[in-house]
């Protein structure tokens, strides 16, 4: 674990993510205003010392909104990825480990989900289920779990051929024992890498859906919804879109960096092992 902190990419992204999470958790303490506080006198103010990020068309403080928005975005990101991970890994491991018709069914199911472009599928599902945060999350889960199922199945197929799995069977271990004790711990690193990359994707997709008005209500503080709300004032008050956009970019980049760094670090670990093997 400490070795991970030697990777500059990981450290940088961890600092950014830490800051964002801190901001989201303590939004009610840190925010200079309440996010419901409307100040119609000061509508569409440019950034100033009173309002660091300016105000929106209802006179709400953008900094406050962005802080509360981090809550929504990060919550959606983590929640969607955790649920997708659970579903995807469970199905993927079952498919990979048992193979045969079970594998066929699960994999054809993921294929049918993957056959559509992910954004299109999410759009279709939200359009079908109706607008709202819960429905948006369901739609994103429907898109996201396939990634984990694929990765988990692939890694399981690899682990399954390993001698320690066969050896465990030959001392009389049950399938459940083998899956829990040997397969899961050995497929966890690729899955975690996919998860950290996935959070970024989900946040982006959630913002996209909200921007299109399919996610959260435009009045709630959410970065995508804020973009949508600020759209009409883009020429006169660009800060309405600039700050939420900046934060979406930063968050997504940080998660992607983190995932990349994690992959590099884990690969590097493998490489070091190989190198040591030479002596």
């Amino acid at each position: 674990m400490i070795e991970l902190l030697k990777n500059r990419q990981i450290v940088l992204s961890l600092i950014i993510l830490g800051g964002l999470i801190f901001m989201a958790i303590f939004a009610n303490v840190l925010a200079p205003y309440a996010y419901t506080e409307k100040d119609l006198q000061n509508r569409l103010q440019p950034p100033s010392s009173d309002h660091l990020f300016g105000t929106d068309n209802l006179g709400r403080d953008i900094l406050t909104m962005v802080m509360y928005g981090a809550r929504a975005s990060l919550f959606v990101g983590f929640a969607v990825v955790s649920v997708s991970l659970a579903i995807g890994v469970a199905l993927g491991v079952l498919a990979g480990y048992y193979g045969g018709w079970l594998d066929e069914i699960i994999m054809r199911l993921t294929d049918s989900f993957l056959a559509f472009p992910s954004m299109f599928l999410a759009l279709a599902i939200t359009a079908f289920l109706g607008q709202g945060m819960k429905n948006m999350m369901l739609a994103l889960i429907a898109v996201e779990w396939t990634v984990f199922a694929r990765v988990a199945r692939g890694s399981t197929l690899d682990v399954k051929t390993k001698g320690y799995v066969r050896a465990a069977r030959w001392i009389g271990a049950s399938n459940t024992y083998v899956i829990v004790k040997h397969v899961l711990p050995n497929i966890i690193s690729p899955v975690l890498i996919m998860a950290s990359l996935g959070i970024g994707n989900v946040i982006l997709a959630a913002a996209g859906l909200s921007f299109l008005g399919l996610g959260v209500q435009p009045s709630t503080p959410e970065w995508g919804a804020m973009l949508n709300a600020g759209r009409t004032y883009f020429t006169t008050a660009p800060w309405l879109m600039f700050f939420p956009g900046l934060f979406i970019m930063m968050t997504v980049l940080a998660f992607n960096y983190f995932g990349d760094g994690l992959r590099d670090a884990l690969d590097q670990k493998m490489k070091n092992l190989e190198l040591e093997g030479r002596f």
């Binding site: 320690y164 009389g172 050995n186």
Partner: peptide, 30 residues
């Protein structure tokens, strides 16, 4: 357990994430 195989590549039979002590204890645990 009455018939056991010792394979060519020992590192293949041992779970890389387990200490060797745990691997040797595994048959008893199972």
């Amino acid at each position: 357990g009455k018939i056991q195989l010792i394979p060519q590549n020992p590192d293949d039979v041992l779970d890389p994430r387990w200490t060797v002590e745990r691997s040797v204890a595994e048959p008893f645990v199972v």
